[in-house]
Each structure stands twice: as C-alpha cells, then as structure tokens.
Design a protein around this nucleic acid. Structure first.
Length: 395
RNA sequence: GCGCCGGUCGGAUAGUGGCUAUUCCAGGAGACUGUAAAUCUCCGGCCUUCGGGCAUCGCUGGUUCGAGUCCAGCCCGGCGCA
C-alpha cells in the first residue's frame, strides 16, 4: 500500500529513545531528524540547493496554504510537490489541522503551542476576527488571502494531500489551545479520533501514489487524555504517528513519553511543531523520530541566531563591530564565509540576504544538532552529550 | 535693508485657545515552537518614597482662567525684491 519503511537501528536503552531509518521512494531519513518547514513549498528565503547543502533530509509543507495558493490541482499537474519545488528528497505535508488552532482559537489571543503559565487568555470568548470554526464534520476556514470561505473535512484534507503528493501525509486533526478547558480537550480529542478514522478510510480507498499516512495523537496536557488518544490512534492502521497539540515545557518529558510507551514501537513518531534545542533532546530521549518547527527560519528572519552559547540577537548594538563568526565552531556556509558585523549590517539595512544567511545558519544549527544527537546515541554517550550541550546553551 | 514664508524628539511630521503634543523613520531592548510573521511588543526630557512631582514646541515678554496655537520684539533659515 505504501513504500515507506521504518527500521530501528539502535535503542537508547531507556525503553524509549532510538535511532533508525525511514525509507521513502524519494530517499532515506536517518532518524532522529529535524524536518525543515517549507509551508508553501519553499523554505522561506532559501533555494532548494541551499536546503540540500545545509544538510536537511526532508521538507514539510502545509496543506491549507498550498490549497489556497496555488491550489492542489497545480501541484498535481506539476507532478507533485517534489517536482514542483525541485526538491529531490522526502517530503511531508501537514493536514491543515494546525490552522484550526492558529486561525481559530489562537488568533488574536497570544496563544502559542507552548503554554504560558502567566497568561490569562480566555479562548472561550468569541472573537469576531477568527478565520476558522470547528464543527463535527470539519473546519470552516476563511481564506487569509481573500476572505473566501472554505470547508475542510478529513476526506478533503487527504484528497488535497494526495494531490500535493508528499511521501508522508498527516490525518486531519484539531490542534487545541493550551488554554482550553479539560472538557473542551475531551471533546476535541474525540472529534480528532473520529476524523482520524475518516482520514484513514478515505486514504485506504484512494491512495494511488504510495503515500504513507500518519495519525495524530492529541489530548492536550492531560495524562489520561494523552494515553487514551495514544491508545485509540495507535490501534488504527496508520503508517506512523504525529504527536500534536500544545505543551507545557516539561510535557516534552512526560506527555511524549506516555504517548510513545503506548504507540506501536515499530512505527515512526513525529513530534509536530517542536524544535527548541532542549525540546529536541527531550523528544528524542522519549522516543521521537522526527521533528519539524518553524522557529529556526522564523527567528532567523527576525535577527535571532542560535549559537552553542544560546540564542543571540544579531541586531544588538554590540555586533556592529564584531568581526568574528556568529558561532566560532559552526561549519555552516554562513559562518564559514561571513562575520557577525556583516550580518549585523545586512539586518540593519534590511537587505534580503540577511534572511537567507541567517536561515542557513539556524537550520544548519538545528539539523546538525539532531544529527549530533543521533551520533551520540550511536556511540552510547547521549546523556553526556545532552548534559554538556544544555549546560552551555542555557547557562 | 524691505517683503513673504517658516522654526515642534536624532530626521520627517500632526496639532490655530482646553486638560496626556500625534504619527512615521532612525535608535535601544525583548518575543517568536505542525508559518496570516522580512512580524509583533516595549523603551526613549528630568526627579520619584512608584502615589506622583517638575519640565518642554527658536528666545524674551505680553494677552487670557488657560498659549505649541493669539500679539509684540528679537534670533535663525528659505524665497523674492532692492
């Protein structure tokens, strides 16, 4: 039914973590791996060649955004997203379920995927400007481009994803707000389970391109719901799993572990939308195989850069005359060729190259960090590497 | 020398009698986790016991309950005429 194969090569030894290989017809992904985000079939500011040379193994695009523009029919005519964007490696598409959150509950509400304990945001309050509305059948979206109304159902999302043609696609789910009540989390989780079944049924009957389908575990920050969701989704005949939803910082260490203890071991697990260094270590330690996250590219465009000593803001005054590399040990294209002072200049003068060089650096940093974590597991010194890295990074 | 116009934060501006002097840029800092983000937020005269207090629209004076705003003189700039 699909070409994807997953092989576990070595286990971390704590009952959860592992390294492995996901084989797709467009190539392999050595796991754990950070999948770079290319929402609209482009990793913002980078050419496909740059994505390749910075070491990325796979790209994740977005169903909702590509459906709105240029439309899945165009992607299909182009011969799929790989041909369209000239990316030779494996691809993923997210189902659009996240937009039910980002254009719905999170819109204008300061809510992020990571819960903020100090926030009193009330998502039960109706917001006239929301662009998404959830019903049992699906999600009604208003296009962010022209305001037109569209309705996504699980079937519709999978149909679009078939047109886009990524190697790995996701079931249609509802990503809930971290501020949502327990009652709402139950309701949303159960709906996501029904949608998972519908996504799977539609996929099985219409999958002509050997695409793999991942089901998505939800359940918010509640142990009972997370376990229930992992069990329900884990028992369905998916090719792999996504773990979605909103987390508290330490949930990466708890919720992810509960879920992965229940999900079938032999199938890959993707942690959706997570990508801070500490979260990558935590996720991998707790059985995650792949990640995706917009943070490296988004913060890059806004002048924040990763270094082994933590994040810096290249726009700070002190970098104007700093003629050293951003990170002295970094082997990325940007660090090998340019100084902090040059990047500072590009950002201050708002030159487009700033976004490109910063994105190359940040993506290299994160992609490479996950590769180093993989090597540490291979060599049996994961915990030493983790301690050393995090102490320096968050000192 | 005469006439006209104009002087408001580092720059550009809004404000023609009313209480808290507007906005943009530049500047300083922060945020960003399945991308509505090359975006967003905060700071920017002085003092403070954090309640607030005192300044400020070229300068000086005046009118007025009240002046960036009206009046007079002066200073500076631009334009025009000699």
């Amino acid at each position: 039914m699909h070409d994807m194969k997953f092989l576990i090569e070595k286990e971390l030894g704590n009952g959860r973590g592992r390294i492995g290989n996901i084989e797709t017809k467009h190539g392999n992904i050595q796991t754990p791996a950070f999948i770079v985000v290319g929402t609209k079939a482009t990793v913002k500011s980078l050419t496909t060649e740059q994505i390749n040379t910075l070491g990325a193994q796979a790209v994740l695009a977005n169903t909702y955004h590509l459906y709105l523009q240029p439309g899945d029919k165009i992607l299909k005519k182009a011969g799929g997203i790989q041909n369209f964007m000239n990316w030779q490696g494996p691809t993923f598409t997210d189902s659009g379920g996240f937009q039910a959150f980002s254009l719905g509950a999170a819109f204008n509400n300061n809510a992020s995927k990571i819960a903020d304990r100090d926030s009193d945001a009330d998502t039960t309050e109706h917001n006239q400007e929301k662009f998404a509305k959830v019903t049992e059948d699906g999600v009604e979206f208003r296009s962010v481009l022209d305001g037109s109304t569209h309705f996504f159902t699980p079937e519709k999302s999978i149909e679009i994803q078939h047109g886009i043609g990524a190697d790995i696609i996701f079931a249609f789910d509802e990503c809930t707000s971290p501020h949502a009540s327990y009652e709402y989390q139950i309701e949303a989780m159960n709906r996501t389970h029904r949608w998972a079944k519908r996504s799977l049924d539609y996929h099985k009957n219409n999958n002509k391109n050997d695409q793999a389908l991942f089901g998505i575990v939800q359940g918010g920050r509640y142990e009972d719901l997370r376990k229930q969701s992992a069990k329900t989704i884990g028992e369905m005949d998916f090719d792999g799993f996504g773990i979605g939803g909103s987390f508290d910082k330490e949930d990466i260490y708890t919720a992810v572990g509960w879920v992965n203890d229940i999900l079938p071991k032999e199938k890959p697990r993707h942690l959706l939308g997570i990508g801070e260094p500490v979260d990558l270590f935590g996720g991998i330690e707790n059985g995650i195989d792949t990640f995706d996250c917009v943070t490296p590219t988004r913060i890059a465009r806004n002048g924040s850069l990763y270094t082994r000593d933590g994040r810096i803001n290249i726009l700070n005054e002190k970098y104007i005359e700093d003629f050293a590399k951003v990170d002295s040990k970094c082997e990325c294209y940007t660090c090998k060729n340019y100084t902090s002072a040059y990047l500072s200049h590009l950002f201050r003068s708002k030159e487009m190259l700033a976004a490109t060089l910063a994105s190359i650096h940040n993506l290299y940093f994160i992609v490479n960090l996950v590769k180093e974590i993989r090597i540490s597991i291979e060599q049996g010194n994961f915990f030493e590497f983790k301690k050393e890295f995090l102490e320096k990074y968050y000192k």
